[in-house]
Design a protein around this nucleic acid. Structure first.
Lengths: 216, 216
DNA sequence: AATTATTTGTTAAAATAATAACAATTCCGC
DNA sequence: GCGGAATTGTTATTATTTTAACAAATAATT
C-alpha cells in the first residue's frame, strides 16, 4: 500500500504542477529536473521532490522527470481518468460563464446538462446545451450518468438544492454560493469563494498603502 | 507598532470570519464567544483567538466579542474603507458574470468600467455600464480613479494587458486566466484558478472511489 | 458584595509543513 | 567502460502553524 497520508497542502499544489507540465508538453520539452521546475514555478526543488514522492518515484536519478509521464501520472492522481460528468444548476451569468469555459473540458470534465427554474431561460441554448427545467432534474439524473453538480444559484436556494442533488446520488458539488456548504462525507464539496480572493487582494493593497504612508 | 508579521494562512481566513460575522449581524446577534464561533465555523476556538490577536484585542474577557465591532474591525484590516474601484477587461462570459455579481459591491468594491477590444461588444450595456473600447483604456485611467484591473481576457492576451495596466499605475490585478501572473512587487496580484479547485474536487472524489473499491 | 461561571489574551506544547542535506543512482562525455 | 557531473528519493533539520493550557479579567448569580 502506498497509503501514506497525503496532506491537503500537497493536494492543492497538484493542479498547479499539472498546469506547468502541460505547458512544458506544449513546448515539446521532454525532460525536466526538479531544479528547473522549481525556478519556473517559484518554489523549492526540495518541495517538488517531496510532493511527488507522496505518490511514488516518478523520476530518475541523474536524469530528472519525463514530462509526459509525470503529467499523465499527476492526471491519474487527480482522477482525470474518471472523465467526470457535471451538470450546472443555475443558468445565470456565472452558470453561463462556467458552461462556456473550455478549460474544464481540457481537464477531462464535461458539462452534460444545464438546469434552471426560470421558464424564460428554459430552452435557451448555452454552449450547445438546451437549458432544462429544474423539474426534469430527477428524471435526467435517473437516466444519465452525473457525477458533479455545479451550483450557480442564488444564495437562498443553495442549501436545498445541494440536499436535493445529494439525495439523487450525486457524489460531488462545486458550490459558487458564498456559503460553506456541508453535507455527509459521502458527498465531496468544494466551495468557491470568489470574493474571499478579492478581499485578500484588498488586504495586500491596503497593507502596501499603509506601509508607504509609514515610510514617508 | 503592532507590526508583528501576519502570515498568509491567517490573512486567508479573514474573509471567512468577515462572512460569518456579517451573517450573525443580519441575524441581529450582538455578541459571540470564540467557542460559539468555532462551532459554527468548524475550526478551533484557540485558532480564532490567536488569529484575531494578530491585529489587537477586540474581545473582552468573560464576555466574548461584540459582533458589530469585530466585523467592522476585520473590514478595516481587509482595507474595505479604501472603497477600491475596479475595471473589468474582457466582456466575455466571465467578465459578464463578475460585472453582475452583487457581492463585490456589498464588500465595498465597485466596478466602474468594462473594456473589450471586440467592436461588436463595445457599447453593449452590462449591469448599467456601456462596454468601452480597449483603446480608450489609457484615457479612462488618466481621468478616473482605478485601483484594480480584473482580467477576464483570453490566455494569450493576459500578460501583455497585465503589463499595460501596470504601466498605467494600477496597483492591483485580479487575474482569471489560468496562468500565474507575476509583476513587480508594486502591483499586487491575485490569480484565480477555477479549474484548480475543480481538480481538487476530482481528486477527493477519485480518492473516495478508490477507497470504496479497496474496502470491498 | 462575594462567589462562581465564562472567556479572553498569551504563553507553551504539539503537530504539520517546508527546507536542507546527502547517499545512492544514473547519465554523459571521452 | 570509466570518472565526473547531475539528480533523485529519503532522512534530518528547521520553520511554521495549530492546538492546548492557564492566569487575569469580566460577567452573572445569589
Amino acid at each position: 500500500m502506498d497509503d501514506k497520508k497525503v496532506s491537503m497542502a500537497v493536494v492543492k499544489r497538484l493542479p498547479r504542477y499539472y498546469r506547468y507540465l502541460t505547458d512544458l508538453l506544449k513546448l515539446e520539452v521532454n525532460r525536466i529536473s526538479s531544479k528547473e521546475l522549481s525556478e519556473k514555478m517559484g518554489i523549492t526543488a526540495s518541495q517538488i521532490r517531496q510532493d511527488l514522492n507522496c505518490f511514488g518515484g516518478f523520476g530518475q536519478q541523474g536524469y530528472g522527470y519525463n514530462v509526459e509521464i509525470l503529467q499523465r501520472e499527476i492526471g491519474k492522481i487527480l482522477g482525470m481518468q474518471n472523465k467526470f460528468k457535471a451538470i450546472i444548476i443555475g443558468a445565470g451569468n456565472m452558470g453561463n460563464a462556467i458552461a462556456n469555459y473550455s478549460l474544464f473540458a481540457e481537464r477531462g470534465y464535461s458539462i452534460v446538462a444545464i438546469f434552471d427554474n426560470n421558464t424564460e431561460k428554459v430552452g435557451k441554448i448555452i454552449n450547445n446545451l438546451a437549458v432544462l427545467d429544474m423539474n426534469e432534474l430527477e428524471n435526467y439524473i435517473k437516466n444519465n450518468r452525473v457525477d458533479i453538480a455545479i451550483l450557480t444559484v442564488p444564495f437562498q436556494y443553495t442549501s436545498q438544492i445541494a440536499e436535493r442533488v445529494a439525495s439523487l446520488g450525486i457524489k460531488g458539488i462545486w458550490n459558487f454560493s458564498p456559503m460553506d456548504l456541508r453535507l455527509s462525507h459521502e458527498v465531496k464539496i468544494e466551495n468557491v469563494h470568489l470574493s474571499d480572493s478579492l478581499m485578500v487582494l484588498g488586504y495586500r493593497m491596503n497593507k502596501k498603502i499603509e506601509e508607504d504612508k509609514a515610510s514617508l
